[in-house]
Design a protein around this nucleic acid. Structure first.
Lengths: 182, 182
DNA sequence: CTAAACTTTCAAAAATTTCTGAAACTTCAA
DNA sequence: TTGAAGTTTCAGAAATTTTTGAAAGTTTAG
């Protein structure tokens, strides 16, 4: 690893836990992203100076996130690993996987709690708040899944539009009022 | 705490680390959200069965996230704590604070690395990837900050529109082509 | 079938994070 | 100025997460 590549890979390790994995998993995906050729598990272990067993668990973790794919070289028994798509694909997968882990369990708990009848004023207030939280999480979930169905180009277009989207929304209203359908 | 409230608060504790804080901080904000009156640090410690010192650190943490505000009751020296806004405000603050912690450091590292001249083919490829990553993170950052400037009503409208936003984008193009200005 | 080449598993060690509680600190009424 | 009521700090204990490495497992060529 050259110094530039190393500083990027080590940074991915430090950020790993904030991004939802652990240090070595962060280093592994960082290294795979900037590598121009697929790498074997042993190469990862040697390059990153971590144990072979740790690499094996890291690979499993990255596969569960769908961030890497396995490749084979004819006449070679080893598994070679590479990122499962371009930067956009990876970002979208991390985003989606985190949404699942960070919001779905809460959504399901909230759903079950707000179904019950409040036993007193205090619970009534609590359930009201839980209801607000539920509605917000649900809106975000629906929105996220719809955004994911959009092509990267359209998404980029939307992002580049930025707050200008507010103006477009106003425009849509005007447009619809003057006779068009959905 | 009634059983329903307790199950919500304990859930917030379990999710705490996924949301970016630790268990007791998660429980604390959960409890404050569903409480119809502000709570003192001692009440939090007693209700959650955690040490007074831990509550003090948790309060500092929640203040650094700007998720709670301090209130006073006339003739009472104690500090009373309550959520710093409604569910939307809290969600927006968590989102923003996490963006800062999870993306800004990486953006700054990438910026410095891609400025340097690649020393060989391998580094050229790596820096290309880092450039892509940089551009994506920067687009997201700009977009997030613009979304934050929108009112909750407009944001909700945008979210409810869902993937229909694609159609609106197309419409905007048509509209602009037929003679209107930005 | 056997052995070589490779991968996975998992118990225990190491590292890290969280939590406690006693001591120090702050503030204010009297 | 004093002391009661309150808050914060922080070193060490407890809990949790990560990492190692040796043993077990798998696959395939011969």
């Amino acid at each position: 690893m050259t110094p530039k590549i190393e500083s990027f890979v080590m940074h991915c390790g430090e950020m790993g836990s904030r991004w939802g994995f652990n240090r070595t998993v962060g280093q592994m995906i960082g290294l795979l992203i900037v590598s121009d050729t697929p790498k074997t598990a042993n190469e990862l272990a040697d390059t990153l100076n971590i144990s072979r067993g740790n690499v094996s668990m890291g690979i499993k973790e990255l596969q569960s996130w769908q961030l890497i794919k396995t490749q084979h070289i004819p006449g070679d028994r080893k598994d070679y690993y590479a990122p499962a798509g371009d930067i956009w694909d990876l970002a979208i997968r991390v985003f989606e996987e985190r949404r699942k882990r960070e919001m779905d369990p809460t959504l399901s708990l909230l759903r079950s709690v707000i179904l019950e009848t409040p036993a007193n004023k205090q619970e009534e207030y609590a359930q009201e708040k839980m209801h607000e939280m539920h509605d917000l999480l649900e809106s975000i979930t629906v929105w996220a899944s719809e955004l994911q169905r959009m092509s990267p180009e359209k998404l980029l277009m939307l992002m580049k539009l930025g707050s200008g989207v507010g103006k477009v929304l106003d425009m849509k209203d005007k447009f619809l009022k003057s006779g068009s359908s959905d």
